[in-house]
Deep mutational scan, measured.
Amino acid sequence: MKVTIEENEETGKFTIKVKTEDGEEKTIEIPKENLEEILAKLPPNVEII
Rank of each mutant, 00 (worst) to 15 (best):
E33W: 10
M1R: 03
L35D: 00
E10Y: 11
P44C: 10
I38V: 10
N45Y: 11
K17P: 01
K19Q: 14
V3P: 01
K32Y: 11
I48T: 04
E6L: 10
E47T: 12
K26N: 08
T27A: 05
I48P: 03
E7R: 12
K26H: 14
E24G: 08
E33Q: 06
K19I: 15
E9R: 12
A40V: 04
T11M: 02
N34H: 14
P31Y: 11
I48E: 02
K26W: 15
K17R: 08
D22H: 08
K13D: 15
E9M: 10
K41M: 13
E6V: 12
I49V: 10
L35M: 05
N34S: 12
F14C: 15
E10N: 10
I5M: 04
P43Y: 12
V3S: 01
E9N: 10
I30G: 03
A40G: 07
G23E: 03
P44L: 09
L39V: 03
M1L: 09
I49K: 06
T15K: 09
N34Q: 15
E37M: 09
T27C: 13
T27S: 08
T15L: 12
T4K: 03
E21Q: 12
G23Y: 02
V3L: 04
K26T: 14
I30N: 00
I49D: 04
I38E: 11
M1V: 11
V3E: 01
N34R: 14
P44T: 08
E10L: 12
E10D: 11
E24I: 12
E24R: 10
T27M: 09
V3I: 12
E6I: 14
E9A: 13
E29F: 08
E25N: 03
E24S: 11
I30E: 00
E29L: 10
I28A: 03
I5K: 00
G23A: 02
K32S: 08
V18Q: 00
E7L: 15
E47L: 12
G23V: 01
E36A: 13
V3M: 03
P43H: 09
E6C: 14
E7V: 13
K19D: 03
T20F: 15
N34K: 14
I48F: 10
E47M: 10
V18W: 15
T27R: 06
I5R: 00
N34M: 15
E29G: 02
N34W: 15
N45C: 12
T20S: 09
F14N: 14
P31T: 14
N45P: 05
A40H: 05
I49T: 07
P43L: 10
T20C: 15
I48Y: 07
P31R: 11
D22Y: 09
V46K: 03
N45I: 05
T20G: 10
K19G: 03
M1N: 04
A40C: 10
T20K: 04
T20R: 04
T15D: 08
N34D: 14
V46C: 11
E21C: 13
T27N: 05
E29A: 04
V18S: 02
E47H: 11
N8M: 03
V46W: 11
T27E: 06
E24H: 10
K41Q: 13
N45R: 05
D22Q: 07
N8E: 03
V18K: 00
K26M: 14
N8K: 03
I5H: 01
E37Y: 07
T11R: 03
F14H: 15
K32I: 08
V3R: 00
K17L: 11
F14E: 13
G23R: 01
K13H: 13
P44E: 08
E7M: 13
K41L: 13
P43F: 15
K41F: 09
E25F: 09
L39W: 03
L35N: 00
I30H: 01
D22A: 07
E21S: 12
V18N: 00
N34L: 15
E47K: 10
T4W: 15
V18D: 00
K41E: 06
E25S: 06
K26G: 04
T11Q: 03
N8T: 03
F14Y: 11
E36Q: 12
F14G: 13
P44M: 10
K13G: 15
K41N: 11
E10W: 10
K2G: 04
I28K: 01
K41C: 15
